[in-house]
Design a protein around this nucleic acid. Structure first.
Lengths: 233, 233
DNA sequence: ATTAAAGTATGTTTTTTAACATTATTTCTA
DNA sequence: TAGAAATAATGTTAAAAAACATACTTTAAT
């Protein structure tokens, strides 16, 4: 059974194309040193205060990265899906984690030890550049998010989260249902609002014929309007 | 006169120690390729939408980095002081600028062309690591900021900004006055609040004997209390 | 030196958002 | 499958913050 799973898994360089830029020797070195980890739904990958020892790369499933703020109120920083990596920020900054990560659904992860990735970076300028580029893009997103979350009104913030989820995960076959089912609470903690307000605002979007809902399934009826609300705040 | 200024300036590797890790040849290459730029107070260094062509390193003065949000409401992202570099985020992400930068006071800047820094990074793993580390620290700060700005109340946000300014610029000789004089408006746009609210909250802090003010000079009377307010939000 | 402009200070009003309360519904688990 | 726990839905109220208005003060320019 475990074997079957392994066989279904894409190789590490298929999952994250950056590893195709390694030399053959470096790729062998990497393949001798990674581990495969499996997490059940809601299982913790790491928590605030832990020391980062590995960099993770999602092979299957999704991981929720969140932070605890004032009075332990959680804020979802990002959702990490297949082929994306995480845990590298704290590792590179040489800090303990300031976020928590849990499996959002059953998840399989490639786990690469800190020393291995540091070695590879030190001897492969392409890989170094990849992380410089990635961190820079991440930082741009974080800055933009900070402005959105603080300056936009509730409707704008929720619209932005929905657009973000749609852009990250796409639609189901019907071409309208967002391909990730978050609880109202998670949606709220992505959008910096209370669960009540997320529920209320979603309902209002349905009344306004911008969305349609069926439990956690959210259909985007009027994407243009949703983008407009997200933009103007 | 211009010559005199030059002589007062520290060399580029004295300003930013990371350049001491370059090989002698690389340092020569760098020194043959940088330029020195001078900006008057409030002069623009770059603006939103510009394409980054150089990385900047502050030799003297301070630079204000800000973003325009909803309805062009500005938000100060950070203040950059002597020996700190900026403009690298957009450059590495290969995006146009999403922030604006203006000289906060008369400022002298080392300007290094994009290709030069990319060449150096490609051939010097230390320098690459330096930027990976720096970007990771920046990203941690940005994430923490996002949570603070959204979850803390006005007093907490203002206290946090004051603590940040104190930690970045230190005190004057009196051991209490913060060594940077920002307008109430700038203070507000660092702390995600209106100018009125910044003024009102500063006044309240004075009533509470946490601060004392003389124009733009802000004295911290009770630092413990200020840190407590910043922490609890 | 005078005037305009920018910045500061506060009071009042309105809007936005969070907090709370109650009920219904779904999901999990023993 | 019953019962508990989590989630969802809404109405009501309270608090926080923005918007607005006005007056005063400092700074900069002519």
């Amino acid at each position: 059974m475990a074997k079957k799973y392994e066989e279904e898994l894409k190789s590490i360089e298929e999952i994250n194309e950056v590893f195709k830029r390694l030399t053959p020797e470096q790729l062998v070195y990497l393949k001798q040193n990674y581990e495969i980890l499996r997490f059940r739904k809601n299982e913790m990958v790491y928590t605030e205060g832990d020391t980062p020892t590995h960099i993770y790369c999602v092979a299957k499933g999704k991981v929720k990265i969140f932070k605890r703020g004032v009075g332990n109120r959680t804020q979802i920083m990002r959702m990490v899906g297949p082929s994306e990596s995480f845990a590298y920020r704290a590792m590179f900054a040489e800090e303990n984690f300031v976020t928590c990560a849990t499996a959002f659904e059953p998840t399989v992860i490639y786990s690469i030890p800190r020393e291995v990735i540091r070695n590879l970076i030190a001897h492969n300028a392409d890989l170094a550049w990849h992380f410089i580029h990635k961190l820079s893009v991440d930082l741009g997103i974080a800055d933009a998010r900070a402005v959105s979350l603080t300056q936009k009104h509730i409707r704008g913030r929720l619209a932005e989260s929905l657009i973000f989820l749609r852009d990250s995960y796409g639609y189901e076959e019907d071409g309208a249902t967002i391909s990730i089912y978050l609880s109202r609470e998670d949606l709220a903690s992505m959008s910096n609002m209370t669960t009540s307000n997320a529920i209320r605002t979603l309902s209002q979007f349905c009344v306004d014929k911008i969305l349609a809902m069926d439990g956690r399934k959210i259909k985007i009826i009027d994407e243009d309007q949703l983008r407009r609300i997200s933009k103007i705040g």
